[in-house]
Design a protein around this nucleic acid. Structure first.
Lengths: 210, 210
DNA sequence: TAGATTGTTAATCGATTAACAATC
DNA sequence: TAGATTGTTAATCGATTAACAATC
């Protein structure tokens, strides 16, 4: 049984980059990859790559490096991407719809079981095969289906209200796209996914780039 | 003239959260906010909030705290959100389209001037008032219009090719949504915005939450 | 064997936190 | 004035990096 270790957030982010990099390698038929090659591609130091990979629990071989498919599996295991977990999405506006249309989340551990909205004109319809139900059914359905992941793509003004419904239903992790500081009990985990947060990293650097 | 300081990424991310929090405060008519109140709302320590705010260059008042509108402005200045910069988007698939439809980027320092794609059936049309042009015009147009921000929402397989066009045209910052490790010269800044990166932070924690 | 690469242990660096002085 | 809150300086903590031994 693998011991669960808290992997630093920067390491998790880099591991995803390694993952996408070596997926490209698999296509050509390479078998191994070295930390220094990964580092070179990503502009990092090889020791940092080795440290990050150690968090996944696999070992490389001196001289040859890491087995590519083993490393790929190890990252998938670390991220829990080797199987997927049901999720609900609340708020089928432009962004919500776009996420529902995106078919690749299953490769990243998540599957939309059902979506919720308040707009009577779309309730009962489907987006990409995913049924849209009225928001007041959220809490009960989530409880009944034992769903633990909620994706929040509602307007800021109702973000807390919908969050409370999710928490009431037993949601344990919220992927929050709403520009609102939702409050949750201590045992609920939030990942902030606002575009503004990511974009801030870019716009903040602009004066130094021109 | 404010000195440019490199603000740590975690601080930038938290500052965006403070920003959304105090925007809610402005609506009610509060005038000041304390670091301890912000910290309480976000589950942080007040000293960390004060440290982050110091990066924006403003000073608070002992006993009363920070002036809310001053703090809001200071964060906007730090992120360069007080005016906006033209950007181009390449790849008008589901995600690209959804970003073009999103009208709030102007509030976060960015404005789509034009978009690019390869699909002849949509070239020449507009999405949300933004013209879609053939990708081979990208480099020249970007150069001519002095655009410095590129948003990459193309399939992984062409990500490097399109990146090269952007770089050739003089793009200095790339907001990359493609699941591909694009390579750029040292003077080009990349922000990784893949859903998988953000989602990894959530799925990695799942075993501890259930 | 020699050389390349991993993995361990220790050192460094930078971000966070603590203590407390300054001040409104 | 007393008390609340900021801001500074120092201490701590955790992530990154360096040095080098282990090993294929």
């Amino acid at each position: 049984m693998k011991k669960l270790q808290n992997i630093p957030e920067p390491s998790l982010r880099r591991l995803v980059r390694y993952y996408h990099l070596i997926k490209g390698l698999e296509a050509d038929n390479n078998e191994t990859v070295s930390s220094s090659w990964i580092a070179l591609q990503l502009g990092l130091e090889s020791i940092q790559v080795r440290k990050d990979i150690q968090y996944t629990g696999i070992a490389g071989k001196p001289k040859s490096g890491y087995n590519i498919s083993e490393l790929k599996n190890a990252i998938e295991n670390t991220m829990n991407w080797n199987n997927y977990h049901d999720a609900v999405l609340a708020g089928t506006g432009k962004l919500g719809k776009s996420l529902l249309m995106y078919d690749s989340f299953k490769n990243y551990g998540m599957n939309f079981a059902v979506a919720f909205d308040t707009d009577p004109s779309i309730i009962g319809t489907e987006i990409n095969g995913i049924k849209i139900l009225p928001i007041d059914k959220l809490s009960n359905l989530v409880k009944r289906m034992h769903i633990h992941i909620g994706v929040l793509t509602v307007p800021a003004i109702v973000a807390q209200e919908v969050t409370d419904m999710m928490v009431e239903g037993g949601i344990k992790a919220i992927w929050n796209f709403a520009s609102y500081q939702i409050k949750v009990p201590e045992n609920v985990y939030i990942v902030h996914a606002q575009f503004s947060q990511s974009l801030a990293l870019l716009t903040n650097k602009l004066p130094q780039l021109k």
